[in-house]
Design a protein around this nucleic acid. Structure first.
Lengths: 203, 203
DNA sequence: AGGAGTTTGTGAACGGGAGAACAAAACGGC
DNA sequence: GCCGTTTTGTTCTCCCGTTCACAAACTCCT
C-alpha cells in the first residue's frame, strides 16, 4: 500500500514527503507508517521527510516487486477470465504464463492472448517456467484437489478464490479472497445500521 | 465462514457436530469458534455439540443473510463482468439489480441478463430498488468520484475493488479487495523462502 | 439413580498490533 | 556557531483478539 501511495505521489510530481502526507495518502496513522518503514531501515531524514523515489525503490526491493513472478491460473470461468485480463498483475511484476482448465470444451479458447490448456499440463508448465505462485479460480469442489496437484508440482504459494478452506503442507502459503464474504460483512453492518442507527464501525 | 462450513456439513448429511469438527471445517481454533458463537447466544448442548440446521439458521438470521440485498455494480470491465456473473452472490442473498458504466460504448451490452446502463441512472436506481450496497470495479482514477456519487445517492456500504483509498463520510462502510496486493504478499513470502528456507508464515 | 465420559461456555493469561509521546537528528536563520 | 523548528525513529502504554484451562451441563451405561 505504501508503495502504491508513493507511486501516486511520484506521478503527481512530489519529490519529498513527510510521514504525515504519505500516511494520509495510504489511509493509515503516521506513527504506524513510521514504525512500518523503520523495519526496513532508516530511509528518512529527520526534519525533512522521505525522498519519494528512493523510498519507493527500497520498498520495491524489499517486497520483491523488482522481480518477475510467473503465475498460473487454474479455472477459466468468469473470474479466471477477469484475472487473466487484469492489468494490475502485469504492472506489478506478475506474468501469467498459463491458463488451465479441466473442461476440454474450454481448451479451444484464447483468453488474454493465451491458449486455455489442459490441467494435465500443470506439472510441465511449473517445471519449465519455474512457477512458484498459483491462482485457484475454480468452483469450491475442485479447489482442494487442484491445490494438491499444485503442491505436488512444486508450487509453494497459492491465491485461492474458491470459498473453501484449503489444507496444504507446511512451507506452502495460502491466501484466500472470498468475494461474497466481503459483501456479507457489509450486509451485516447494514442490517445493524437500520436497527441501531448512528453506531457503525468499519473494520 | 462458519455459516459456509455448516452448509457444507448439512449437505454432507451431518445433523450434529462438535465445536472441534466445525472449527476444523472452518479452519480455526475450536476455542475461538465457541467464543464467537457464544456472542450470538447459547445454541449448543454440552456433552453433545451443535445442531447443524438450528445453528445454521441462527447464524444466517444474525448476519442478515435471510434478507435479500439489492446491489449495484459500477464499472463493467473484466472484473465487473465476472462479478455480475458470479453465482456466489445470488446464492448468498445478493441480487444484482443494475450494472452501470461511464463508457457509452458499453451501454449496448447485455451482461448476466442485465443491460449495462449509464452511470447517470445511479440515483434513480438506488431510489427505486432501495439499494444500500454498491460495488466499485472501475479503474483507480474513477473510484473516488464514483464513491462520492454513490454516497450522495444514499448508498451506505461500498465494496471497492479499485486500488485506491476511498474517503467517505462517517456512517458509510467501505471494504477493499485488492487483488494484486494479495499476490504481492505471496511474492514477498516467496522471496523470503528462497533466502531463509524453512521459516515461513501464513498470515 | 449414580457415575463416567463428553462437550459447551467463559474467566484468565498471553501476545501482538496501534497510537501517543518523546528523544535524537537535520535544517535554516541570525 | 548556536538556537528554534521540523520531522523521523523508537519506546511505552493500552487495547483487543486469540488461546488455554476449567467448571457447568448433558448423555449414556450400568
Amino acid at each position: 500500500m505504501y508503495l502504491r501511495a508513493l507511486t501516486g505521489l511520484a506521478e503527481g510530481g512530489t519529490t519529498t514527503c513527510s510521514s504525515e502526507e504519505l500516511a494520509a495518502t495510504a489511509g493509515v496513522n503516521s506513527a504506524k507508517l513510521r514504525k512500518d518503514l523503520s523495519y526496513l531501515g532508516s530511509y528518512g531524514t529527520r526534519g525533512v521527510g522521505y525522498d519519494v523515489e528512493y523510498l519507493r525503490y527500497q520498498i520495491a526491493r524489499e517486497i520483491g516487486v523488482t522481480q518477475d513472478w510467473p503465475v498460473v491460473i487454474v479455472g477459466i470461468g468468469n473470474l479466471g477470465h477477469a484475472l487473466a485480463n487484469y492489468s494490475g498483475f502485469r504492472s506489478r511484476g506478475f506474468r501469467v504464463v498459463a491458463l488451465l482448465d479441466a473442461d476440454p470444451d474450454r481448451h479451444d479458447e484464447v483468453v488474454a492472448g493465451l491458449d486455455v490448456r489442459s490441467f494435465e499440463d500443470l506439472e510441465a508448465i511449473v517445471k519449465e517456467d519455474a512457477v512458484s505462485i498459483g491462482v485457484i479460480a475454480t468452483p469450491a469442489v475442485a479447489a482442494q484437489s487442484v491445490a494438491d496437484r499444485m503442491v505436488a508440482a512444486g508450487i509453494t504459494s497459492i491465491l485461492n478464490f474458491a470459498p473453501t478452506v484449503l489444507t496444504v503442507p507446511d512451507g506452502v502459503d495460502v491466501r484466500k479472497v472470498d468475494l461474497s464474504i466481503e459483501l456479507q460483512i457489509l450486509a451485516y453492518h447494514e442490517q445493524r445500521k437500520s436497527i441501531a442507527p448512528g453506531s457503525e464501525v468499519v473494520s
